[in-house]
Simulated scan of single mutants.
Amino acid sequence: MQIYKIFRAPEWAELRAKGETRGAPVDLADGFVHFSTLEQTPETAAKHFAGEDGLMLVAIEVDRLGDDLKWEASRGGALFPHLYRTLALSDVAWGQPLPLVDGVHQFPAGLA
């Protein structure tokens, strides 16, 4: 199973350069790295990245994260995956651009 994280270009560049990240400012403030399931990702993009271009959608294999991944209630009581450690570049299965076309994020074929 994969979970997903949306990175802004500087955040993605930092992960690639350093090999690890504690996440975006919201992740640092909350003390964990936020992820979304496949079904949750379009709403996450619309809610937290509305109108933003230059984004990268990154997939993570759940089994790479071990016990540091916790499923916790968030939006509307839905369970969201939260990582309580640094995200390593080696945790990333793949990353693809998440372009903005006419105000709507265009997910890779087969994802949304």
Rank of each mutant, 00 (worst) to 15 (best):
residue 2 Q to W: 14
residue 2 Q to C: 10
residue 4 Y to N: 02
residue 5 K to P: 00
residue 5 K to D: 03
residue 5 K to W: 11
residue 5 K to R: 15
residue 8 R to S: 11
residue 10 P to I: 11
residue 11 E to K: 01
residue 13 A to F: 11
residue 14 E to W: 12
residue 19 G to S: 06
residue 19 G to E: 07
residue 20 E to K: 08
residue 20 E to P: 00
residue 21 T to K: 03
residue 22 R to I: 13
residue 23 G to R: 10
residue 24 A to C: 05
residue 25 P to R: 14
residue 27 D to N: 10
residue 28 L to T: 14
residue 29 A to E: 15
residue 29 A to R: 14
residue 30 D to P: 00
residue 32 F to R: 02
residue 34 H to F: 07
residue 34 H to G: 04
residue 35 F to M: 07
residue 35 F to E: 02
residue 37 T to E: 04
residue 37 T to Y: 14
residue 37 T to I: 11
residue 38 L to I: 15
residue 38 L to V: 14
residue 38 L to Q: 14
residue 39 E to Q: 12
residue 41 T to Q: 06
residue 41 T to E: 03
residue 41 T to K: 00
residue 41 T to A: 06
residue 43 E to Y: 15
residue 44 T to Q: 12
residue 46 A to P: 01
residue 47 K to L: 14
residue 48 H to Q: 09
residue 50 A to T: 10
residue 51 G to S: 02
residue 51 G to C: 02
residue 53 D to N: 14
residue 53 D to K: 10
residue 55 L to N: 05
residue 56 M to Q: 09
residue 57 L to D: 08
residue 58 V to D: 02
residue 58 V to G: 00
residue 60 I to W: 10
residue 63 D to H: 11
residue 64 R to S: 02
residue 65 L to A: 03
residue 65 L to C: 02
residue 66 G to I: 09
residue 67 D to C: 01
residue 67 D to K: 12
residue 67 D to V: 03
residue 69 L to C: 04
residue 69 L to Y: 07
residue 72 E to R: 11
residue 73 A to M: 05
residue 76 G to F: 00
residue 76 G to L: 00
residue 77 G to Q: 05
residue 78 A to M: 10
residue 78 A to D: 13
residue 79 L to E: 04
residue 79 L to N: 05
residue 80 F to I: 11
residue 81 P to S: 10
residue 81 P to R: 08
residue 85 R to N: 06
residue 86 T to D: 03
residue 90 S to P: 00
residue 94 W to D: 06
residue 95 G to I: 04
residue 97 P to E: 06
residue 99 P to F: 14
residue 100 L to Y: 15
residue 100 L to G: 08
residue 100 L to Q: 07
residue 101 V to H: 10
residue 102 D to C: 03
residue 103 G to W: 03
residue 103 G to F: 06
residue 104 V to S: 02
residue 104 V to Y: 01
residue 105 H to R: 05
residue 106 Q to S: 10
residue 107 F to E: 04
residue 109 A to H: 09
residue 110 G to S: 03
residue 111 L to K: 06
